[in-house]
Amino acid sequence: MTRTLRKSNKFNAISVGVTDAELIKAYKKGDTQALEIIMKKYEKPIYAYLLKMVRNADYANDLFQEIFLKFIKNIQSYNEEKKFANWIYTVAHNAVMDGFRKNKNRCFESLDRSNGEDSAPISETMDSKEPLPENILIKNEINKKIETAFEILSNEQREVFIMRHYWGLSFKEIAEILKVPIGTALARMSRALGRLKVEMGHIGEAV
């Protein structure tokens, strides 16, 4: 396994369907390229979740490092029979919730106003495939409004939305990570949708 990973390109390794369990086994044997593949695989869902939850690039970076360091430090005791995605997502969820508890009174600036080295204005963090400048402008404006509407949601409501979208977990899996009944997870998202609908109704009129 280790030999196969070393020979192959990391992106090929993902595309040929190397499972998380195999990657972790390889990493346990000392293949750091396997770790790189795992990180590349989970980088986007985890980082997007963190950014959307804490809305501060510097803080999201800290949490991102914390989550993966936890993985690196505890790799030997990690049982690869478990579903890795659920494990890492649970670690991410706990890290964010701990952060919220610790920084109860701390008010983060939103991504748009953050001046961190890696933070970018919201318009720059969006994929704009529209060729016409006015379309880009409208799309950016809509995105900005949705982003603002997202900020109105409670952490619990926003989290279910983000978990379902970026992590691709079923509501059952989300409920397991959150340690709540599936009905609660669905109700949170349903309420979130209701609030977004109200906010976006105004957006529709404004734009």
């Binding site: 790189e36 980088e43 997007a48 950014l51 991102f64 969006m126 704009s128 949705i146 982003e147 939305f161």
Partner: peptide, 19 residues
């Protein structure tokens, strides 16, 4: 659609540091 268009890639130096 809005969430899809979000580029949620972690800065390269974070990954490099962890590796």
């Amino acid at each position: 659609g809005h969430l899809d268009s979000f580029k949620g890639n972690a800065p390269a130096h974070l990954i490099e540091g962890l590796i």
